[in-house]
Design a protein around this nucleic acid. Sequence first.
DNA 1: GAAAAAAGTCCGTTGAACGGACTTTCCGTC
DNA 2: GACGGAAAGTCCGTTCAACGGACTTTTTTC
Lengths: 258, 258
Amino acid sequence: MASEKTQVVTRVTAILNAIALHGAQGARLLDLAQETGIARPTVHRILQELAEAGFVEQRASRRYGLGSALYLLGLGAPSPINDFAGLKKVVHRLADQTGDAVYVAIRRLDGVHYLMRADGSYPIRAEIVEVGETVPLGVTFAGVALLSWHEPEAVEAQLLANERLRRRMKAVEMSDVQDTVTAVRQAITQVHERGYFFDKDTVLHGVSGMAAPIPSKTSEPYMAITISAINDRLPPARVDELAPLLLEAAREIGTFIR
Amino acid sequence: MASEKTQVVTRVTAILNAIALHGAQGARLLDLAQETGIARPTVHRILQELAEAGFVEQRASRRYGLGSALYLLGLGAPSPINDFAGLKKVVHRLADQTGDAVYVAIRRLDGVHYLMRADGSYPIRAEIVEVGETVPLGVTFAGVALLSWHEPEAVEAQLLANERLRRRMKAVEMSDVQDTVTAVRQAITQVHERGYFFDKDTVLHGVSGMAAPIPSKTSEPYMAITISAINDRLPPARVDELAPLLLEAAREIGTFIR
DNA sequence: GAAAAAAGTCCGTTGAACGGACTTTCCGTC
DNA sequence: GACGGAAAGTCCGTTCAACGGACTTTTTTC
């Protein structure tokens, strides 16, 4: 493993990516060392140096999070979304049409990051994720939809790797790993056949959702759009009814991104 | 210079920051080597490694720009703006009140990055900068307003350092360096006395503007708000009239940021 | 199409990066 | 409030990854 002919730069990027996956609450030094496979003193030293440059910040809890210098760099980095206003319009339209909550998420390393949400008129709302959150691939509806573009072996590896992270998710009762792997495999077949993923109770008991990958002009799908509601709002008949709307929205958004 | 006890991480951050300052058109290898003071082969190697991680991208022109991995990391980094919707409202209100173009910019390393723009109803519009652009500190109205929080020596160093960058700006006729330094010194005094900066013709012949630093709860000002219009729209009497509106907007926005 | 300039590559030398071992700080528990 | 286990932080001798001078290739300019 060690002899890739370069160390520090690769390590720096690995550490930053690892921190990103820990989201808002920040990452512990020990976790970062384990996840990157780098010795703890080394991670510590690199973190100090990154902190000096404002690329990471150490919170009061001693956990490390991304620093605001990265926010500023991010402003200058090319966004894959060419027309955010257009995207927004499509999402709100879908929320109006369906009455339910619509999310848009973007693939972010081994996770999905929730970019925006539009609420429909139906008063009962299931708050599975918040905008700005990053959740491991394969955990949420959008995450499964995007996972479907991976090789089967990669999928399985991902799911096992997720286990630890997944347990962190509040209010989620998980079935055991093997069950999950099988379930997600079936889900992936579904995405390939119908173009979208539908399921209930998997993410949060009582909540149904359907998610479609958003096609990209230049690469495999890296964004997804989700409709989510309580189980009673999404019986099979209504899923069939909503599917064309969901897929059309995905197609349209595909024209607004790289 | 060499013995700061750390190299690569500092260098990586320096290179990324240097690239950021080159904006959309990208940076040449040679420029980056000069600007960071690192030997060209070294910069080249680090760039290759960063490119592999998606942190930088090499364009067809062989120039280097920030990569989309940084966009994704930026999504997870803490934004200093707590309430973007509130900020937007204030800016649009000011544009409506004045009829002129209003910009909001954020300090970004040795430059200012333009975050948003709202147009007023007046039909003649001076497009000095575009949203998303980064311009060296002290070049635009907002840039001068923010420069006023630096130590005098730092200001002078900044201005001299800007000269090279500044020449790149399209359509800008510059007076010679000494004149500029003197002019900016006066401008800074003005900001300290009145709380805002007003000038005409400095940035672009025929264009006047006034800019106020936005106070931050937690640090010195790092954002600014600008009103800009053609000279005839901003005679001294109107400047006096607009100043309270500008300062009030700046104060309000200050409550929406860190 | 020659010359200049920039980009990219090679490789021997060396000091920055590494990480095992140690110390300090934090925090839950009784 | 002080004990103890766990995580964070520091030290320092060893070593190999990073460095950059010198060279080659590609691009641009005239």
